[in-house]
Design a binder for these strands. Sequence first.
RNA 1: GCCGGCGUAGCUCAGUCGGUAGAGCAGCUGAUUCGUAAUCAGCAGGUCAGCGGUUCAAUUCCGCUCGCCGGCUCCA
Length: 638
Amino acid sequence: MVNITFPDKTKKSFENNPTGFDVAKSISEGFARNCVAMEIDAKPADLSSKIQHDANVRFITTNDSEALHILHHTAAHVMAQAILRLYKDAKLTIGPAIENGFYYDIDMESISEEDFSKIEVEMKKIVKARYPIKRRVVSKSEAQVLYKDEPYKLEMISELNGQEISFYDQGEFTDLCRGPHLPDTGFVKAFKLTKVSGAYWRADQNRQQLQRLYGTAFFSKKELDKYLNFLEEARKRDHRKLGSALDLFSFHDEAPGMPFFHARGMELWNELLTYWREEHCAAGYVETKTPIMLHKSLWERSGHWENYRENMYTTVVDDTEYAIKPMNCPGGMLLYGMRPHSYKELPIRAAEIGMVHRHELSGVLSGLFRVRAFHQDDAHIFMRPDQIQQEILGILQLVERIYSTFGLTFHLELSTRPDKSIGSDQQWEMATKGLRSALDEYGNDYKINEGDGAFYGPKIDVHIKDAIGRTWQCGTIQLDMSLPERFNLHYIGQDNERHRPIMIHRVIFGSIERFFGILVEHFAGKFPLWLAPVHAILLPINDELANYASELKVMMQKQGLRIELDDRSESLKKKIRDAQLNQIPLMLTIGEKERENGTLAIRTLDGTVKYGISHEEFFNRVHIHVRLRKPHLDIFSD
RNA sequence: GCCGGCGUAGCUCAGUCGGUAGAGCAGCUGAUUCGUAAUCAGCAGGUCAGCGGUUCAAUUCCGCUCGCCGGCUCCA
């Protein structure tokens, strides 16, 4: 007799030891059909598991988010089964569920995406067969016998100490796995293999190169299609495509990983930084600038020479070694250290738009998202210990103001002391407490990543969410207990003694190049007016009106508009189409009526046209939109 | 850096089972003068990424180099 308690506190008693499936069916047949797994006393289990003793049981149905994770894991097994059928010599390693899908690392001949369809066909057969998925527990020695020809699995088993060792069987296939899994392979209704790449066994370059096959799966075709549409939408927004289509930036073989910004890209860039400077000025920051290239001794002192040298560009001048800065902080330390400081001056908030170079591996470069030369919107804040909470709170408020201007939402994550770290327990406690209390005072929820901090201090990371729901880590606020020590920085306290200042590094955009790329994708190239490289374009409907349009252009330039004129002998339709493809927010068609009445006809990117707008109204609306940095494009809404 | 894929006109792409290339768009010239997403015609445009090898002949086959794309963090 076992007594089962459900999440809603209702109870049910069963004779013998029922399986999860028995219990689910006792609720209703329909419910049981939707169940994929369960939790017994908060531990995940298969529906086929027997409930041995009184327990709290929660069923996981296809509506629960965990169900997808289980589905992914089962789909990985289905894929592995299909591959073993098709490639006899393949040796399985690991195959976890990941965000948005799953992968399996397999030691096998190299395959390409062209091989996907035949694997998918085999997977479909396995799904259709609806093989029941059964769990069995074996001893370590039994497992070793079972896997005598599977070197990778043997290695994994040898690392399992104390845990129960379980296998999952479906048809002729069996795999070492913790589970849980779906009741049968028939649940894997909608799946797709997405990519293949190389990966190393145990992520170690010196070990066997494996094939990593990625896939995704859903409980219905509809959800799969939705996900594939999302990928398609992301592809359309790709900043590398839009960057060249909209003439914003480019890359050249002569400087791999180092972007060139075009005139139009620079309009956006400069707007971004003008805004950034306004906000920082208002928040009490000063701006500094330090050299790009500094003497080796500085990098030895900062610790970069020892820890970061592989990523640094170096050069020898007059027999002396220099390094191009990969970070701005050591230069910032020199500025602080050049004269004594009083406790009354603190906090000092020294911002720096610093250009840094980092020699990233060639294979990781990716558009503006991963580059070798970029600018950080850095700031180094020097303060007294009693100012930590207030300063962090101030940064969080600044972060919120800036991101919201772009219509970006964000969440915060706190990373605490890692195993390998410098500084005393007391310092860490004070620093972490400072961050934590600032976060608490700020009020929004935050996630804690235990042990994920930098070796020199705890940090808060800011993750933004873009228009199609993707998240990006941009901002970071890091307490640094190392550099002030290394550079022997101090301030004179009220007690007339020397004290070590607390230092934080923080960025909000992070890499300006990367943030630029994120904005391109976030807005899909349709920038709000204040950021748009070109505000408006004049489109005379015939050549005779070109002169008048040209006068308007000069007049509008004087009003501070970024204005262009399309006076080609093309049809109006053609000019509109081209302006539309260039994502120019405002198209001003100039015809006879506009000249006679001195008004404007304004077409916006959504295709709507407003006639008879006075010049005055047009300028007012544009100026208000630009000045208030409205995040939407429609100048006729407020 | 490693694995796999790719590199043909400014862009998107076709093509050559080895006999030195073709379309659309963009550009230029001319005609057209147009009221809200492509007017028409003509012209021009290429060391087929670079270097080397095989061959009577290489853009094509082979090797190397460079660059780009997808991965290389997710742990049975």
